[in-house]
Each structure stands twice: as C-alpha cells, then as structure tokens.
Design a protein around this nucleic acid. Structure first.
Lengths: 158, 158
DNA sequence: CACAACTATATTGTGCGCAATAGATGTGCA
DNA sequence: TGCACATCTATTGCGCACAATATAGTTGTG
C-alpha cells in the first residue's frame, strides 16, 4: 500500500464504524428477545407497540409511528397482525376519518402482567450503571438522528 | 396513575428500555445511509459485506457471518443479489466443497474508491470524541451479546 | 470400508422496514 | 362555494433477518 502514516487511518475499516456495532447489537438483541417474547406471542416490534399502548390509550397510527420512529408502511401490517391476534382494536376516528385509533382489548391489557418480568429477564447479568450510561448515550444519538430524519423535506440544514 | 412511589418504577416504560434506542438508532441510521449508498447501488448490509471483503479476500459465507453476526439465511440471498450486480463472485472451495468462497470482481474492487467519502459524509456534524465514546460502549455490548448468542447450543452459563 | 456424527451452505416461511405511490379526508383561501 | 393543498393511512414492491429444516460434504471410529 502507501507508505504514509495517514493512509493507515482507513475510514472503511469495519472496526472504525460506529453504525456497525449498533446494527449488530440490534440484531443480537432481537435474537435474544425472541425466545423471551414467544410465550407472550409477541415479536419485538409488537412488544414495543404494547409498551406504548400500556402507557397511553388510544393512540393513532401516527402517534405510534412518531414514538417508535416507524411509518405506516411498517405499522399498518404489524397492527393488523396484532388485531388478528386479539390484542388491539383499530377503528377510524369519528372526529377525523383520516385517523385510525388503536386501543387495547381486554386480552391486550391483561398481557401486561405477563410482560412484567421481561425487562428483568433480559437485563440479567448486566451492570446497571453501565447499561444506564449506554442508554443515555444512544438516546442522545437518537434525538440527533430524529431531527435529521425527514427534515430535508422542509428546511435543509436545521 | 398509582399513588405508590415504588409503582413509579415501572420497568415497562418505553423510556426505561435500553434496547429501544438501539433499535430506533439502527432504523434511523439505515434510513440516512440509503440515499448516500444509492449511487453505489448498495444497501447498508451489502455495504458492510463490501467493507469486510475490502479488508480481506476471499472469505467464506461463514467468515462473513461470524464477522457481521448474520447467518446463511440472511447472507445467501444477499450475496446472490451482489453476485447478480457483478460486485462479487461465489464458488465452492475445491479443498472443501461444503464451503463457498466469496471474492470481489474488478467492479467490486473499483467500487472502493467511490465509497471512500461515505464515512466522512455520514459523520458530518457529529462530535468525533462523543461518537468514539459511543462506539466503544456499543462495541463492548456487542462483545457481551455475541458471547451469549448461540452459546446455549453448547455449554449453558458461558 | 461402513457409517454415524458433525459441519457448511441453501431453502422455506414469516415478519419486519422502507421508498414510492395511491386514495381518502380535512383545511384554507380566493 | 369551490378547489388547490396538506394530512393521514393503506398498498406495493423489494430487501433484509431469522427459525426451522433440508441437503451435500467431511471426519472420526471401528
């Protein structure tokens, strides 16, 4: 290769990437959640929707998308599967027929009790302080990324 | 909600989750990479495969999977698309016909020059020290998660 | 040599995730 | 009032991501 020291700073090396560990961690976490969520008959994204609905009800598809950073192309079929599973109900908002209100069924509300152990089960064996630090760091990144997401439709350089 | 102070420590609150910001960041990043990688005719996972191959060649499907934490169910069709795009070649290892060796084509090697700007483009506007700190934190998490991943097939408690 | 156990990749089926687009409803403004 | 424009959800097409399974190849043991 080149003899220059600066050439050693190869920006394309996999272990220089920030995004790759995030990508890998997400895949690995998803894989670890799967067996824990299987008894609840939930996938990880469905679990996230339940977390949001357990906090507040009803929510529109747009509300859920804003909270989870997902769009209708992802949420509509996912919510239909959850509706078919009897966890939620979907109906048009009579005050604004463009909106779809998502509410929990009794089964959906009852499922919360069975989910209470999930965070503890998943968090087992990790240093709580380290995890909290990581959560804050990644959350800050999400806040920045979310500002850029879709921003180019409007302003430009925010 | 409840009057109890302990009840406020709801483990199911979305903003208590560590995994959700990781999930959201990954989706947001993927969305931001898409327009940058489009001129290279690469998706983000395909870009990761190219990063690995630009570092070393040839690699088996298993090598790529170990490096990226993906299995053949994901890689096989992805690699076939990259082969159809003329970026890589796949052939059975004559020394061990079970293995498939993945190599770059000339086009694949040449693409590296066009990819050199990608890290700088994506990293624009971020504090390098903060990014590096985050990278180390998430990488450490990946290392831990990877130990658990598939470990239950063998030992049990690592 | 036989043959069971193991390894590596491929296939199948399901569920995201998103860009692009469509279609229906609401809003503002002349 | 009428009509352009914006908003909200749904649909389509494609590419992951993975569990479960299948298939082909290799190795170890007798």
């Amino acid at each position: 290769m080149s003899g220059s020291v600066a050439a050693e700073e190869d920006p394309l090396r996999l272990d220089r990437q920030v995004c790759f560990p995030l990508y890998a961690a997400t895949n690995l976490i998803n894989r670890l959640y799967t067996p824990v969520l299987r008894p609840l008959r939930l996938t990880y994204p469905q679990y996230l929707v339940m977390l949001v609905l357990w906090e507040e009800e009803p929510q529109t598809v747009g509300d859920l998308g804003a909270r989870l950073h997902l769009d209708s192309g992802t949420l509509t079929p996912l919510l239909k599967r959850m509706e078919a599973a009897g966890l939620i109900a979907r109906r048009r908002d009579p005050r604004d027929e463009r909106r779809v209100l998502v509410t929990l069924t009794t089964d959906g509300r009852d499922l919360r009790a069975k989910a209470l152990h999930v965070p503890a089960t998943m968090g087992q064996g990790y240093d709580p302080a380290g995890v909290e630090e990581l959560r804050e760091g990644v959350s800050a990144l999400v806040a920045i990324l979310a500002r850029h997401d879709g921003a180019d439709k409007i302003g430009g350089d925010n």
